[in-house]
Simulated assay, not measured.
Amino acid sequence: MDLRPVLLPPPVSMARVEELSREIERIEILFYGADRRAAEEAVAAFAEQIVDVAPAHRSIAL
């Protein structure tokens, strides 16, 4: 396993972790509720937000 610091994601504030957690919980409620389309749209928006925040990590192969 390669543990070079350059491959680690940037640090994330606790406020950001809480924000992401709330958004995931909101998507979960939509997903298990009757509004499947809203859930799919929320997942797509969430994914765009994550990619926009960490563009440097897009090219890292797992």
Rank of each mutant, 00 (worst) to 15 (best):
residue 23 E to P: 00
residue 55 P to N: 03
residue 52 D to Y: 00
residue 62 L to E: 10
residue 34 A to V: 08
residue 46 F to N: 01
residue 58 R to L: 09
residue 18 E to H: 08
residue 40 E to L: 14
residue 23 E to V: 06
residue 8 L to K: 13
residue 51 V to M: 13
residue 59 S to M: 02
residue 4 R to M: 04
residue 46 F to Y: 07
residue 42 A to H: 03
residue 14 M to Q: 12
residue 58 R to Q: 10
residue 23 E to Y: 04
residue 38 A to C: 07
residue 11 P to K: 01
residue 41 E to S: 10
residue 47 A to S: 12
residue 45 A to C: 10
residue 5 P to D: 06
residue 58 R to M: 08
residue 33 G to F: 02
residue 16 R to L: 07
residue 6 V to I: 14
residue 58 R to P: 02
residue 9 P to Y: 04
residue 5 P to W: 06
residue 7 L to A: 05
residue 3 L to P: 00
residue 38 A to W: 05
residue 58 R to F: 11
residue 45 A to H: 11
residue 51 V to P: 02
residue 44 A to P: 00
residue 27 I to L: 10
residue 28 E to D: 15
residue 19 E to A: 10
residue 43 V to F: 06
residue 14 M to V: 15
residue 34 A to Y: 03
residue 47 A to I: 06
residue 54 A to P: 02
residue 4 R to S: 11
residue 33 G to P: 00
residue 58 R to A: 09
residue 57 H to D: 11
residue 1 M to C: 09
residue 31 F to V: 14
residue 23 E to D: 13
residue 62 L to A: 11
residue 29 I to S: 12
residue 17 V to M: 08
residue 26 R to W: 10
residue 15 A to H: 10
residue 44 A to M: 07
residue 31 F to P: 00
residue 10 P to L: 01
residue 60 I to A: 11
residue 15 A to G: 13
residue 31 F to E: 14
residue 15 A to Q: 15
residue 58 R to G: 11
residue 60 I to Y: 04
residue 12 V to N: 02
residue 19 E to W: 02
residue 29 I to Y: 02
residue 24 I to Y: 11
residue 20 L to W: 01
residue 50 I to D: 04
residue 16 R to S: 06
residue 60 I to T: 04
residue 59 S to F: 03
residue 36 R to Q: 09
residue 50 I to Q: 12
residue 7 L to M: 05
residue 48 E to N: 07
residue 9 P to S: 00
residue 33 G to C: 03
residue 42 A to W: 00
residue 25 E to P: 01
residue 57 H to R: 12
residue 30 L to S: 08
residue 16 R to V: 04
residue 53 V to F: 08
residue 58 R to S: 14
residue 17 V to P: 02
residue 10 P to N: 10
residue 6 V to P: 00
residue 24 I to V: 15
residue 56 A to T: 06
residue 36 R to A: 08
residue 9 P to C: 02
residue 10 P to F: 01
residue 47 A to P: 00
residue 27 I to A: 07
residue 27 I to C: 03
residue 26 R to S: 05
residue 54 A to C: 12
residue 59 S to P: 01
residue 41 E to H: 09
residue 61 A to C: 07
residue 19 E to Q: 15
residue 37 R to E: 15
residue 25 E to D: 11
residue 5 P to M: 06
residue 54 A to R: 09
residue 17 V to S: 04
residue 25 E to L: 08
residue 5 P to S: 07
residue 38 A to F: 06
residue 22 R to S: 15
residue 59 S to T: 01
residue 38 A to V: 06
residue 61 A to G: 10
residue 36 R to M: 06
residue 19 E to G: 08
residue 57 H to I: 05
residue 53 V to M: 13
residue 36 R to P: 00
residue 49 Q to L: 15
residue 20 L to T: 01
residue 18 E to M: 03
residue 34 A to G: 09
residue 53 V to A: 09
residue 12 V to D: 01
residue 24 I to M: 14
residue 31 F to K: 13
residue 2 D to R: 05
residue 19 E to H: 08
residue 54 A to I: 11
residue 61 A to P: 01
residue 29 I to F: 04
residue 40 E to W: 00
residue 7 L to Y: 11
residue 19 E to V: 05
residue 56 A to V: 04
residue 36 R to N: 03
residue 38 A to M: 11
residue 26 R to G: 14
residue 5 P to L: 04
residue 61 A to S: 07
residue 58 R to N: 15
residue 25 E to K: 10
residue 15 A to L: 13
